[in-house]
């Protein structure tokens, strides 16, 4: 149990997707101007990652991993080079399903998400979650925790950046630094702060 909790903390804070691993930065920067939008994005990220990483784990272990077809008499078949296409397909499909479900049962939340939900298909952080799951060979329980933890870390980071940026809208910045420039500097400072979490889990 403590192992899974450690994994959650590591995924959320030490290996924070946008700030430490530079994943999902496009949406991280583009949608962090308003706190409400950032919060919606964070919740959507957590949901989608919590679903797609375990789903891709099952598909990888069941169909693509070396030796997965041994029961059918093809033990040397290695389809792992197809994982990229399979993962993207799963992510696109689950984003679509999630959108349909929300639209049917929770229309208010669906309206709040707006265009962010379909955009998540091409979010590098989500695909990276599945690729890391293969690279580090997580078990099914670990991949659930890892997916939720990474999504939660993303949500925390994007909400914090949005809060700082909405305050800075009043600030008198040099013209060239306005908008994107200051967002990078802020992300750098936050990343410096998150670097100190590295000791937190290691020290336990």
């Amino acid at each position: 149990m403590t192992g899974l909790w450690d994994l959650f903390l590591t995924a959320a804070f030490v290996d924070n997707m946008p700030l430490t691993l530079f994943l999902g930065l496009c949406t991280f920067l583009a949608l962090s101007k308003r706190p409400e939008a950032a919060f919606g994005l964070g919740v959507a990220m957590t949901g989608v990652m919590g679903v797609t990483v375990p789903l891709n784990h099952l598909i990888y272990q069941g169909l693509l991993a070396p030796g997965a077809w041994a029961w059918a008499g093809m033990p040397e078949l290695d389809l792992s080079y197809l994982s990229l296409i399979a993962f993207i397909g799963v992510i696109a499909a689950s984003v679509q399903v999630l959108e349909l479900l929300l639209d049917r049962f929770l229309p208010s939340i669906h309206a709040a998400f707006g265009v962010f939900l379909p955009l998540l298909t091409v979010q590098c952080a989500i695909l990276a979650g599945s690729l890391f799951m293969v690279e580090r060979s997580y078990s099914l329980a670990e991949s659930v925790v890892f997916g939720l933890g990474s999504g939660f870390g993303f949500a925390v980071a994007v909400a914090m950046l949005a809060a700082i940026r909405s305050r800075l809208a009043y600030a008198d910045l040099p013209a060239g630094l306005r908008g994107l420039g200051i967002a990078f500097v802020l992300a750098g400072l936050m990343s410096l702060g998150f670097a100190s979490f590295a000791q937190m889990v290691a020290a336990q």
């Binding site: 700030l19 530079f22 040099p174 060239g176 306005r178 420039g181 750098g188 990343s191 670097a195």
Partner: peptide, 26 residues
Amino acid sequence: LAPSAFFLLGLLVWTIRSFKPEQAEA
């Protein structure tokens, strides 16, 4: 480490936009 990449890209954006003021955001 990770933070310096953010700082460098931020400074690069600033440099380019100082030479090309039309790129600066409103």
